[in-house]
Amino acid sequence: MLTAALRKELLLQWRSRAQFMAVFVFGAAALLLFSFAVGPVAELLRQFSAGFLWLGLLLSSTLTLAESFHAEMENRAMEGLLLLPANPRALYYGKAIANWLQLTLLGIALIPVMVVLYDAGTTRIPMLILVIALGAAGLSAPGTLYAAMTAQVRSKQTLLPLLLFPLIVPALLASVKATSLIILGDPMNQVRSWIVLLASFDAIYWSLCGLLFEKVVEE
């Protein structure tokens, strides 16, 4: 059941890959705009690069997450699947994994933008990708749940960030700290602790949201 759900998600995402490009451009534009807040001071930009990257990713995620339920709601396709019957948990994890993949790819795509704009290069690329993957997972789990909820109400564009942003503060903190240490240097090897925090957040929310999803989509 999960593979069926995942296949569908990946197919849907592939069909709307133009949208991914648009979100990438949005994210890159955000990174550019953030630099205007600081000014062309290379040292400062480098110091804040991790924060900017994750803020950019966070803002982009609202677009990705909201879009992921658009196809499900326009013809009530999700209801159609639930009535087959399809396991709601499988549908949730399929969607959450697909969103996670998209956010991770987006994060990786933004790395070169960050490197260029903020002079924030690093050799520890695998570590950086790991942090992006874990952080994206932290955004994706509750994000998918709330996107499912808000897709069904008016004012959906305001509600999703309003509900999601306070919730993912720990994931954001940990991701920014870990990324910052990777870029700026980590003499005391603290990255490990932040990664553990991120992984715990992910574990808790991937299980909790999976359990609660059914309540959110049933009428």
Binding site: P142, L145, Y146, M149, L163, P166, L167, V169, P170, I204, Y205, L208, C209, L212, K215, V216
Partner: peptide, 11 residues
């Protein structure tokens, strides 16, 4: 809102 409260509180 019950779901959201649970998620927020666990956080």
């Amino acid at each position: 809102s019950a779901v959201a409260t649970i998620i927020a509180y666990v956080d």
